[in-house]
């Protein structure tokens, strides 16, 4: 309702400007059907469409259409050579009933996502909140220290040396020296340690864009709100955080959550470099590995498409869910 009113107001304003020239047709929205109005608006905004078109075409071609095509292919047994046969739910049935490795992959992905997503999100916010009251120069330096690992490219391979399996690895060397262990531990080759270590490393490099967004968001919270809060009886920083800061940060929190969830489900690259591909006993095998295996190595494209559809649904679904939850914040 509100929208219609503003549009009409704008239209009348425009008509007023044009009156000297074209007095004959004082067209207002009331005289037209919805479609006529839309058509007229489309014609009037040719430039706008010209401006969005190049981006939207490339975006649709390489992001939107591939998702739709994946969904379609997931119901077929396409192998890149023959025309795809429609097999309905066979791929999905095979995934859940006849593919033990996929069950491992989905378990690992969920564990990774449940561990890295929320923790990196909280870590990003907590650190941003901690450094909010530092002086600008020190804050810039601390920001760099926490943000650097996420943009440092291959630097995370240092963890492979820190937790190297021989006695020259940093951790093994010292544990041996201090007689805590007698034989070196095969960190990334041991199913007990492999997953937790991969999670630690991915947390190490997870303070990225969301973190920056939180820092900037905290800076623009209106300071007078804090002062008003103090006068109105906010007793300590925790109450201030809960009653003032968090509600003001809602939009940044939403943006950060989207990035954290997407990152958590796309996880896999870190594992390859540290634990090898495939990892020992598939202990860190994720959906992205399974997908690359069937799509890239075996060319069972229909099956791989089904895997990618599930990955898409898990990531997208969690995003929608968290968005719903966060929108309740401060209400």
């Amino acid at each position: 309702m509100a929208k219609e009113v503003t549009v009409t107001a704008e239209e009348t304003a425009e008509v007023k400007v044009k009156t000297p020239k074209e007095k004959k047709q004082p067209v207002s929205r009331k005289d037209m059907t919805k479609w006529q109005w839309t058509l007229k608006e489309i014609k009037r905004n040719g430039t706008a469409y010209a401006l969005v078109a190049p981006f939207m075409i490339i975006f649709c071609l390489f992001t939107v259409i591939p998702v739709i095509v994946s969904i379609a292919l997931s119901f077929t047994n396409f192998n890149m050579l023959q025309w795809p046969d429609f097999v309905f739910m066979d791929n999905y049935i095979r995934l859940f009933l006849d593919d033990d490795l996929f069950i491992t992959a989905i378990q690992n992905t969920l564990i990774f996502a449940a561990a890295t997503g929320p923790i990196s999100y909280l870590l990003s916010f907590v650190v941003a909140w901690f450094i909010n009251e530092l002086s600008p120069k020190i804050r810039a330096i601390v920001t760099l220290i926490f943000y650097a690992p996420s943009i440092a490219g291959s630097a995370y391979t240092i963890w492979a040396y820190i937790f190297s399996g021989d006695s020259y690895g940093f951790v093994n060397g010292w544990l041996l020296k201090l007689n805590i262990i007698q034989d070196p531990i095969q960190w990334f080759r041991d199913t007990t340690y492999c997953m937790p270590l991969c999670i630690v490393v991915s947390l190490w490099m997870s303070l990225g864009t969301a973190f920056l967004s939180f820092i900037a968001g905290l800076q623009v919270v209106d300071r007078s709100l804090y002062e008003a809060g103090a006068v109105d009886g906010v007793k300590n920083r925790w109450q201030e955080l809960y009653y003032i800061t968090l509600p003001c940060m809602k939009q940044q929190l939403m943006f950060g959550a989207v990035l954290a969830i997407t990152g958590a489900f796309g996880f896999g690259g870190v594992v390859d470099a540290l634990a090898g591909n495939p990892s020992v006993d598939y202990c860190a095998w994720t959906i992205t590995h399974h997908l690359a295996d069937y799509g890239g190595a075996r060319f069972e494209v229909g099956y791989a498409a089904a895997i990618s559809v599930l990955l898409f649904l898990m990531s997208f679904g969690s995003n929608i869910l968290i968005k719903k939850l966060l929108s309740k914040l401060g209400q």
């Binding site: 549009v7 704008e10 839309t38 608006e41 489309i42 905004n45 706008a48 469409y49 969005v52 939207m56 975006f59 071609l61 390489f62 992001t63 939107v64 259409i65 591939p66 998702v67 095509v69 994946s70 292919l73 890149m80 989207v258 990035l259 969830i261 997407t262 990152g263 489900f265 796309g266 896999g268 992205t288 997908l291 799509g295 494209v301 791989a304 498409a305 990618s308 559809v309 990955l311 898409f312 990531s315 997208f316 995003n319 929608i320």
Partner: peptide, 30 residues
């Protein structure tokens, strides 16, 4: 302000909600 603007932006926001791997297979075919 132009018709279709809001759903275009919605689509872009949605694209932030899944990683590139989810569309990798079809992208390869493309």
């Amino acid at each position: 302000k132009f018709p279709g603007r809001d759903w275009m932006f919605q689509l872009i926001v949605m694209s932030l909600m899944f990683s590139a791997q989810a569309s990798a297979i079809a992208n390869f075919i493309l």
